[in-house]
Design a protein around this nucleic acid. Structure first.
Lengths: 164, 164
DNA sequence: TATCAATATCTTGAACATCGAGATATTTGA
DNA sequence: TCAAATATCTCGATGTTCAAGATATTGATA
C-alpha cells in the first residue's frame, strides 16, 4: 500500500476525497498497530482515546460512544481499571451511575507510543506558514464536524444490529 | 463528544495536533458505524477498503496489511466471498498463492453507505479556492505518508503479540 | 408516602472471530 | 532429487462481545 491505482484522478475534488479515504484507512490501521504494540484490544484503546478527549463520563455514555453493549463496557472498564488507565467513581447525585475517570496522564505508556507520530506531525506542520497552518487547522475542524454528523446519522439509523 | 476540554490549546501547532487526533478518533468511530450498519465485522470492512485501494492482492499480503493471522484471513475471505465482495483466483505462476480480487464496484451497498460522507466532503471542499484546495490536498498526502511510516515502524517493532 | 415505570450498571451463558500451531501443497535452491 | 522455504488452510482453544435478565436506584403519580 502506497500511492497506487486510480488515486491520481483528474478531478481535484475527487482526488481530495480519495486522499481523505486513504488517510482514514491508514488512521485505522495505525490505531490498530498502537493497540497491538501496547497489548491492548482495539476497543480498549479506542475508549481510552475517547475518555482522553471527553474527560470523565459514565459507563452508559461510553457504551453509546463506542457502540458497545453495556455488558461489554463493564468488562472493558474492568480491564482498563486493572491496568490503571481509568478508575471507577460513584456519582453522589445518582448512586446508580458509575463515572469513569481517565488516568491517562499518569500512564505515560500510551503517550509514549503516540509520541513518534506526534513528533512527526509537529515536524510536518513546521513546514507551513502561519496562514497556511491556520487554513489547514480550520479545515480539520470542519472535517471533524462532518464526520461527527455522519456518525450521528449512522448510529441513529442503525440502532440494534450485529456487528464486530 | 464535540469540542470539549483542553482542545483550545494556545499553541497553534499543538492545537493542530489535537484536532488531528480528534479527526482520527472520529474516523475510527465512523468506520465502525459503517461496518455495523452493513452488518459486517470491522476487520471485514477494513479489508474491503484496503482491497479497494490496492486492487487484487494475495491472502498473505492482506494478512500483513491487516495484521491478522493467516488463519483469520482465510475465514475472513470466506465471509467476504460468500457475500460477493471479493472472489478467489489462482495465481497461475505460483499455485500456492490465492489472489483476492475485489468486486467492490459491483456491490453498490458499500459505496451507498459511504455516499453521504462523500457528498458532505465534496460539499466542504467546494467552499475552498483552487489554491486552498491544492494546499489541503498536498497536506493530506503528506499526512498519509507520515501515518504510513508510523505504521511501518510499529508493525516491525511489534511482530508477534496479542491484540484485538 | 407507597408504588410503578424508567434508568444505570452488572451478571450470566452462548456465539463467534481470532489466534497459534500443525497440515498440505507448491516452489526454490543446492 | 531433496530439503528448506513459502503460501494457504484446518482445527482446537481462548476470550471479547452480545443479548437478556438481575439488581439497585431514581422519578413521577396518585
Amino acid at each position: 500500500m502506497s500511492s497506487e491505482q486510480q488515486d491520481q484522478t483528474t478531478d481535484p475534488k475527487e482526488r481530495f476525497v480519495s486522499l481523505m479515504r486513504g488517510l482514514g484507512t491508514r488512521t485505522i490501521l495505525y490505531q490498530q498497530n498502537v493497540a497491538a504494540s501496547l497489548g491492548m484490544y482495539n476497543n480498549d484503546l479506542k475508549s481510552v482515546d475517547i475518555l482522553n478527549e471527553t474527560g470523565p463520563i459514565t459507563a452508559g455514555e461510553l457504551s453509546k460512544l463506542t457502540g458497545l453493549a453495556t455488558g461489554s463496557v463493564t468488562a472493558l472498564i474492568d480491564r482498563l481499571e486493572k491496568v490503571g488507565y481509568v478508575r471507577r467513581e460513584n456519582d453522589p447525585s445518582d448512586r446508580r451511575r458509575v463515572i469513569i475517570v481517565p488516568e491517562y496522564e499518569s500512564k505515560e505508556e500510551i503517550s509514549n507510543t503516540y509520541l513518534p507520530l506526534h513528533t512527526a506531525m509537529i515536524n510536518l506542520v513546521s513546514s507551513y506558514t502561519h496562514e497556511e497552518l491556520a487554513l489547514i487547522t480550520e479545515f480539520l475542524g470542519k472535517a471533524s464536524s462532518v464526520l461527527e454528523e455522519q456518525i450521528e446519522h449512522l448510529s441513529t439509523a442503525t440502532r440494534g444490529r450485529t456487528s464486530s
